[in-house]
Design a protein around this nucleic acid. Structure first.
Lengths: 210, 210
DNA sequence: TAGAATTCTACCCATTTGGGTAGGCTTATT
DNA sequence: AATAAGCCTACCCAAATGGGTAGAATTCTA
């Protein structure tokens, strides 16, 4: 039996979800609340096991993201599937950072939400395609790299840049490349000029990938 | 009509994919190759529009990741769905960085691959749940934060750490926090001690999130 | 209340770094 | 052949940084 909890302020959506999963075989809605505060008051982590929480992002009072932090701190094993009407980039990343296992649009059919829950319980994650795209675009380096490439770094400079990004000192870079420290400094100066920074810390903070 | 290309060295898998999509209404397989090199020779970007490339990761010769870079550089609008037997974290991220729009396991049913392609063409992304989990876990800060927290950084140190990660100089940090430069230096020394580094560049390179 | 931890400030010193300038070398490009 | 671009080295100087030590105020905790 899969124990579900639902946190959703819209009473009709909460009703639909609760009714649907209550009727489904193998699922049980053990808690249904209209706000994080309500959920917080009613849930006794030690007594009530919850496998998956379906949680709205835009809750009145404390947000759904706060809810994620709280739930994961109380019960590491409990998974959280965020549900929202928004496709806001920021919210998505905040939820994921907090430890959510999935993120689906409210427009998602109930059957797909059910599939998502099962995916989560099988060690996967559930994401609506549009959400997945947002997440994927986060990794896309094509622009970032071109940002560096467009500054016309020479091969040598790119090589040194990669050492800089590893946090190496000039002396270490010089040894690695069998160059004099002065030469390394020379190239670094040019890199700074092209990338418009004035210290290695600034450079790494701005341009380091990952 | 959706124009597909398939790059896959396993002849039987390539056959299955080619046959399936050739038979599907609205799809046309315009190119089917067993390696990136073959694909490279046969594709004329200017003449042949490709909407989606289904591409294996573990190709003989140049890898699927190289293929992604090449395809995206020649035709920005062409989407790429990576297909693989591996769930390797590194490969996933490399593909996404290169500009892939999706990543599915080879065990995925053909119908789901087809759904994935449609998701991609509708501005979404396609990911198998297990892959999505890998990606999501990348964002999960709960552990990463503890990696820093386990070193027992004090509140003040964490505050300064966040400025360091932005690449700020001591003087700038001092101004931001209304402290003397000496105080900032004092805290930074302690941070270095706890995190076992000896320069800001090394610190940012090692501990910067994202 | 006493001790511990944290925070803030200050000073010293050696090293590293950033920025400027200058000259020689090699390898395309014209 | 001449010019340009990239690469390497060297030197100078001021600023920033890293590391050590030390004293005092504050807050938390036993």
């Amino acid at each position: 039996m899969i124990h579900l909890a639902i946190i959703e302020d819209n009473i009709s959506i909460r009703g639909v979800l609760t009714d649907y999963f209550s009727a489904e075989q193998g699922y049980e809605v053990v808690l249904s609340a209209g706000s994080f505060e309500k959920f917080h008051d009613e849930w006794r982590p030690a007594d009530t096991r919850i496998d998956v929480v379906i949680c709205d992002i835009g809750l009145p009072g404390k947000s759904g993201i706060d809810a994620v932090w709280y739930i994961k701190s109380k019960s590491e094993k409990t998974h959280i599937l965020m549900l929202t009407v928004f496709e806001e980039r920021e919210k998505i990343f905040q939820s994921l950072c907090a430890g959510a296992s999935g993120y689906m649009l409210k427009s998602t059919p109930l059957a797909e939400i059910k599939t998502g829950i099962n995916d989560i319980l099988n060690g996967g994650a559930a994401m609506s395609p549009k959400i997945a795209m947002q997440v994927i675009s986060y990794f896309n380096k094509r622009k970032q790299v071109s940002a560096v490439e467009s500054e016309n770094l020479t091969a040598r400079e790119i090589e040194i840049l990669s050492f800089l990004e590893q946090g190496l000192a000039n002396k270490a870079i010089a040894e690695q490349m069998s160059l004099s420290v002065d030469t390394v400094k020379f190239h670094i100066k040019n890199i700074y000029l092209k990338l418009q920074v004035s210290s290695r810390a600034e450079l790494i903070a701005k341009y380091k990938q990952f």
